[in-house]
Amino acid sequence: MNNLLSIHTVRFVVLILLQVLLFSNINFLGYINPYIYILFIILYPVKNNRILFLFISFLMGLIIDIFMDSGGINATAALVVAFIRPAVLKFSFGAVYEHQALKFNNIDFGQRLTYITILTFIHHFTYFLFEIFNISKIILVLQNTLFSSIFTITLCILITSIFSTKSK
């Protein structure tokens, strides 16, 4: 348990630093950035204290906001993703999730891709909706969501594959 706690604390700090120092400055084609800090929310243990989880996600978004001077955009997006995660888990993994026996290292690639894709799209859509904050520019919101999502999903899959400790 102690070990688990330290892993998540380190992940929290490292992902925030990576996000603000590296991934927010990529600006691929001028504006496309990945938001890989949601990896923390994606990989948070399934068995959790719901309220604590919501609060930690909110806090993470808020810290990113403070770094990026973006008001409360990341906090909102992270909070929405954290709230909606149980439903997505249920949809992606079905029975495995019901039995609370889910280990992210042991699930197959397809399911993991579905799970990460849905969460990323929800996060990015909320993020750009609040960032652009203008319903008449909905096309721009969708366009940014699509491009950034592709970038984020690719990176998330890569990172989870590299750091997974699969024992066969």
Binding site: R50, I51, L54, F55, F58, G61, L62, D65, S70, G71, G72, I73, A75, T76, L79, V80, F83, F130, F133
Partner: peptide, 21 residues
Amino acid sequence: KSFLFFLLLLCVSVGLTIQSH
């Protein structure tokens, strides 16, 4: 309680967003 907590935090973050805009 978790849904209400979610709503509370959502209000805070949306408030901050509106303020920043």
